[in-house]
Amino acid sequence: MAQPDFEEIVEDFEFLEDWEDRYRHVIEQGRAMDPLEDALKVPATKVDGCASQVWLHPRVEAGVFSFDGDSDAMIVRGLIAVLRMLYNGLPVGDVVRVDAGGELARLGLNDHLSAQRSNGLRAMIERIRLVAGEHV
């Protein structure tokens, strides 16, 4: 069920055997992402449960889900970019059916993120699922 952009990063990770290279690749994905407008960095878009500052701004247009996001931590910005590859462009009803844990496991992220980062990632996924569920 993964989006083509997500499949591309899975392929990139298969090519990058060293975890340090994969980590850098995730950070590069975050750097390539446009920053979230300051006007959207408000309490309503802030994700609780993350060690760093995280904001997600989801949208549903014509039944299609997408979101933008930002963080003050580069690795978290990269994780937001990865989640955007996983979810953006899906019909809103499909968002809640994505096995995010299973898809992200394909990248080996679970084995290489700190407990705090893993908790933050779960919090971001829950926010995405919650917002999408409100539009189904």
Rank of each mutant, 00 (worst) to 15 (best):
F6T: 06
E134C: 13
R106K: 05
G133Q: 02
I128S: 02
E7Q: 02
A123I: 00
D48N: 06
S71F: 00
D38M: 09
L130P: 03
A73F: 03
D94G: 13
P91M: 04
G30M: 14
A81P: 10
I75G: 05
D111N: 12
V92H: 11
P43G: 08
R97C: 08
R97T: 09
H57A: 02
A39D: 00
M74E: 10
A81Y: 11
L90F: 07
R31H: 08
L113G: 01
G49T: 00
D5L: 09
P4I: 13
Y23N: 07
I9G: 02
L40W: 13
V64Y: 06
V47P: 05
D34R: 08
L86A: 10
S118G: 04
V64F: 09
P58G: 00
L36Q: 09
L90N: 04
M1E: 15
V54L: 04
R59M: 04
L104V: 00
E61H: 04
M33G: 09
G78C: 11
F65V: 01
R31S: 12
V54Y: 02
R84K: 09
G49Q: 00
G69Y: 01
V136N: 05
K46L: 01
W55G: 07
L83K: 11
L90W: 08
G133E: 14
G78D: 14
K46I: 01
M74C: 10
M85F: 12
Y87S: 14
V47N: 12
D12Q: 14
S71T: 01
N110Q: 08
G89L: 09
E61G: 04
E11D: 13
R77F: 04
A32R: 12
S52V: 00
I9S: 07
L113A: 03
P4T: 09
R97Y: 12
L36C: 08
D38F: 10
L16N: 13
D94S: 11
D70K: 01
V131K: 12
P91V: 00
A100P: 03
E61Q: 05
E20L: 10
E17N: 13
D99E: 10
S52H: 00
A73I: 05
R122T: 04
